Amino acid sequence: EGLCAVCGDNAACQHYGVRTCEGCKGFFKRTVQKNAKYVCLANKNCPVDKRRRNRCQYCRFQKCLAVGMVKEVVRTD
C-alpha cells in the first residue's frame, strides 16, 4: 500500500505509469477519453491533495501529467 502521486490518498497499484488512487485514475481516464479541456480560475497552481483534489480540474490534470501519467496508454475504444 502506497500513496497517490497526484493527491496523496491511498493507492494500491500503478495506473497509466504512476501509483495513483482510484479517484485520480478515473479522473485521468475520463479526461483523456473525452479530450476534456479545463480552465483554472486562479493562478494555475491550486493545491491538489486528498481533501481538495476536486476543486480545480485544470490543476489536477496538470499534476497528473507532471507526475508522469501517460495519455497514450488510456484506451479510447
Rank of each mutant, 00 (worst) to 15 (best):
E1A: 02
G2V: 05
A5R: 10
A5P: 11
G8L: 15
G8D: 02
G8C: 05
G8E: 15
D9R: 07
N10S: 03
C13A: 14
C13R: 08
C13N: 02
C13K: 14
C13Y: 06
Q14D: 05
Q14T: 11
Q14E: 07
H15N: 11
H15Q: 03
H15P: 14
H15W: 12
H15Y: 04
H15K: 08
Y16H: 15
Y16N: 12
Y16T: 07
Y16K: 05
Y16W: 03
Y16Q: 12
Y16M: 15
G17W: 03
G17K: 03
G17H: 11
G17S: 03
V18Y: 15
V18S: 07
V18G: 07
V18P: 07
R19K: 13
R19Q: 09
R19N: 14
R19D: 05
R19H: 14
T20P: 00
C21Y: 03
C21F: 00
C21P: 00
E22N: 15
E22I: 03
E22S: 05
E22Q: 13
E22Y: 13
E22H: 11
G23E: 11
G23K: 14
G23S: 15
K25P: 01
K25R: 13
K25N: 12
K25W: 11
K25D: 11
K25A: 14
G26N: 03
G26L: 06
G26D: 09
G26Y: 00
F27R: 00
F28R: 01
F28H: 07
F28L: 06
F28S: 03
F28K: 00
K29V: 10
K29N: 06
K29E: 15
K29M: 15
R30M: 06
R30L: 06
R30S: 08
R30T: 10
R30Q: 11
V32R: 15
Q33K: 10
Q33L: 10
K34V: 10
K34G: 13
K34W: 05
N35T: 06
N35P: 08
N35R: 06
N35W: 02
N35I: 07
A36P: 08
A36T: 14
A36Q: 08
A36R: 08
K37G: 09
K37A: 05
Y38V: 09
V39M: 10
C40S: 02
L41A: 10
L41D: 15
L41F: 08
L41Q: 04
L41R: 09
L41K: 06
A42V: 08
A42R: 04
A42T: 11
A42E: 15
A42G: 08
N43S: 07
N43P: 05
N43D: 03
N43A: 15
N43Q: 04
N43L: 09
K44D: 08
K44P: 02
N45S: 03
C46I: 01
C46Q: 04
C46L: 01
P47Q: 15
P47S: 09
D49R: 05
D49Y: 06
D49M: 07
K50Y: 12
K50T: 14
K50F: 09
K50M: 06
K50S: 11
K50E: 14
K50P: 15
K50W: 10
K50H: 07
R51F: 13
R51M: 12
R51D: 01
R51C: 05
R52I: 05
R52V: 11
R52G: 13
R52A: 12
R52S: 03
R52P: 15
R52Y: 15
R53V: 12
R53G: 13
R53W: 09
N54S: 14
R55F: 10
R55G: 10
R55S: 06
R55Y: 12
Q57Y: 06
Q57V: 07
Q57M: 15
Q57F: 05
Y58D: 07
Y58W: 09
Y58M: 06
Y58R: 03
Y58E: 09
C59E: 03
C59W: 00
C59G: 00
C59V: 00
C59R: 00
C59F: 00
C59I: 00
R60G: 01
R60L: 13
F61L: 13
F61V: 02
F61A: 03
Q62V: 06
Q62A: 08
Q62T: 14
Q62I: 04
K63I: 01
K63S: 03
C64R: 01
C64F: 00
C64W: 00
C64Q: 01
C64V: 00
C64Y: 02
L65F: 05
L65S: 03
A66K: 05
A66W: 04
A66T: 05
A66S: 05
A66E: 09
V67C: 07
V67S: 08
V67G: 04
G68H: 02
G68F: 02
G68L: 01
G68A: 04
M69S: 01
V70A: 13
V70C: 11
V70G: 11
V70S: 09
V70Y: 01
K71Q: 15
K71E: 10
K71I: 05
K71D: 04
K71S: 14
K71Y: 14
K71M: 03
K71F: 04
K71L: 09
E72T: 13
E72M: 08
E72W: 04
E72D: 14
E72A: 07
E72L: 02
V73S: 03
V73L: 09
V73W: 07
V73T: 15
V73A: 04
V74W: 05
V74I: 13
V74R: 07
V74E: 13
R75M: 12
R75V: 11
R75F: 11
R75S: 13
R75N: 11
R75W: 08
R75G: 12
D77K: 08
D77Y: 01
D77A: 11
D77C: 09
